[in-house]
Design a protein around this nucleic acid. Structure first.
Lengths: 340, 340
DNA sequence: ATGCAGAATGTTCACGTTTTCATTGTAGAT
DNA sequence: ATCTACAATGAAAACGTGAACATTCTGCAT
């Protein structure tokens, strides 16, 4: 009694002695079908191994039950962690994740957005790679599917998930100031996106608040790909007097910093205090353990998914903005500056 | 003259004064349409902003131009790197990547495979999370879409991409033996998959070949989630005499190992030689730089994509197997064992 | 001139589902 | 008994495309 081809709604209808409409309703609005009929249909579905054809469904409803997820680089831990958490939550709701990577190139990101549009994804969740790039800004602004913007300041009607980078950074820098540090530097690998800008701003705010004169080379950007130890070494030793504390963005930069410090013979924390951002793995494994500004990427991904799901249910409500915390966790990597 | 709804093949046909079939042919088999007509159709497409409706196309052809990519954990660097490389190559060929994560659980992986099937992906590329799990083995064996098995020994008609884990491991262990090491341990975080088994086997082969008696605790598995420093510390110091060399799998274990060594006051390489596997980032940033067994994840992902594309073109050819190399790169983390 | 092969294009229908609208059945109000 | 309202179900059409088959046209051999 089994079919060679995949069973369709018609096969189920025939087997259950009802019309296709009723079968469709059992799938989509079961409460409209009286219990006896419903059960008959459901057992026919099971018997035949019926699974609705998604393409046909999409053609009628224009819904693909697919969400596009766009990242600059999947090998950066936070991106992968957020994507995975979002995929899990969306999967529970029957949505799948279509992955696209821009490789940090705005043009490729624009192209990816257009591909996602072509594929009629029901929504897009994205980490834009450059929030200042004009055409990319335009492409994001003109997105006509429900979208969730992850931690970017860009004009858009999209829902947003923000991390609070400032409070934890304030706390961290104040702690350094309280310990007596006067010469601190911030090492970052990207300046095109909100997290870096926020951190930088918060960093400079506390500097100023403490009455320290902020100098040119105090917040430094190091391109990740050119991230050489010598550059970091230079940054560490640059200036007179040399910095007594460093705040570092990301695991890769943190590793390089620890290495550079060791090469220059700078002991942590005796001669150099170190604080890491978004680098829990390396920070925890380092000796001494490195103080860290942390976020919960799992909950960022989950929040993005939930926001998307809510938006898909109610398309007309005002764009939402969710703010998630960072926290500063102190470890033995901090000490007063060495006597000069 | 523009439409409110998305233009269809019919709109293009009307604008170009041809039938829908001709428009369809311009999209799919342009050589069948005479140049003049073809250009007329193409300019009508451009004028209307026509993009083929993928769902309708899928319903006719049963092809989704979507490939499922299944990983145990996206936050593990090699997985993310391979996925990203595959996505890039597949994207160039007009395919998109549907991401699924099993979270290291065979049951969830089976479920994910079934979801991918429901979504009618044209193919599946997968890192199975456990090559010995009976139901998962059955699910993989019974996959009825073109699939590429990444570095697993499982029965299947799928194409395969293998890494050669043995040669580089042989080389690495022989180097240790040549340096005079007699007591070496291998730290791994997974034993359910081919790479770990191969490495373990290769490790023990050289041990035996060197006439060293392999003991119980010589190849040790440490669950990643329970990966505590104390466990690693115990492993390092266990046995009498204590091991003089460690080979470590993955960035996270390497970090923990370096930390454990430092805590126990074991200098690298004077008292402990260290070799890392698949942990280029940490190995490079460590001091001293750690010797490493490396793979090119980019080319693994690209090979997987190419294999899939070839399979989609020719469904009947024999399953292929691609073997990609690993290489051993020595760094200052190796030295003769300390005099006992 | 006629026939014919093959190139170019068209007509019709099917893919599997949901939507719209119509029909039947049932129970309660009159 | 009749009417009404509503619940339950069904018939037919539509979504946008591509495949099978049909038709027209062109040029060339007879």
């Amino acid at each position: 009694m089994s079919l060679s081809r995949r069973p369709t709604i018609r096969d189920v209808a025939r087997a259950a002695g009802v019309s296709t409409v009723t079968v469709s309703r059992v799938s989509n609005e079961p409460e409209l079908v009286v219990a006896a009929t419903r059960e008959r249909v459901q057992s026919a579905m099971r018997a035949l191994g019926y699974v609705p054809n998604l393409a046909a469904r999409t053609m009628r409803t224009n819904a693909t039950h697919t969400i596009g997820f766009l990242v600059p680089d999947l090998t950066i831990y936070p991106n992968a962690a957020v994507a995975q958490a979002a995929a899990r939550r969306l999967g529970e709701a029957g949505y799948a994740l279509l992955l696209a990577s821009s490789d940090q190139q705005p043009e490729r990101e624009i192209e990816a957005l257009s591909i996602l549009r072509t594929r009629q994804v029901d929504g897009v969740i994205l980490y834009a790679c450059d929030q200042d790039h004009p055409s990319l800004r335009a492409a994001v602004r003109d997105l006509d599917v429900p979208s969730v913007l992850l931690d970017r300041d860009m004009p858009s009607r999209a829902d947003r998930i923000y991390s609070d980078h400032r409070s934890a950074m304030h706390e961290a820098v104040r702690r350094l100031v309280d310990l007596g540090h006067r010469r601190m530097i911030l090492l970052q690998y990207d300046m095109r996106i909100r997290p870096s800008l926020e951190r930088r701003a918060a960093f400079l705010e506390v500097i100023e608040e403490a009455g320290i004169v902020a100098t040119e080379g105090q917040a430094i950007r190091l391109p990740l790909d050119l991230m050489t130890l010598s550059e970091i070494g230079a940054a560490l030793l640059d200036g007179d007097p040399a910095p007594t504390a460093v705040i570092v963005e990301g695991s890769r930069l943190l590793l390089a910093t620890i290495q550079a410090a060791r090469l220059r013979g700078l002991a942590i924390p005796a001669q150099l205090s170190v604080i890491a951002i978004d680098a829990a793995d390396v920070a925890t494994a380092a000796t001494p353990e490195i103080s860290c500004i942390l976020r919960d990427f799992e909950s960022i991904g989950t929040a993005a998914a939930d926001t998307m799901l809510a938006r898909l249910k109610d398309r007309d409500s005002r764009p939402s903005a969710t703010h998630l915390p960072s926290r500063f966790v102190e470890q033995p990597s901090l000490a007063p500056p060495p006597p000069s």
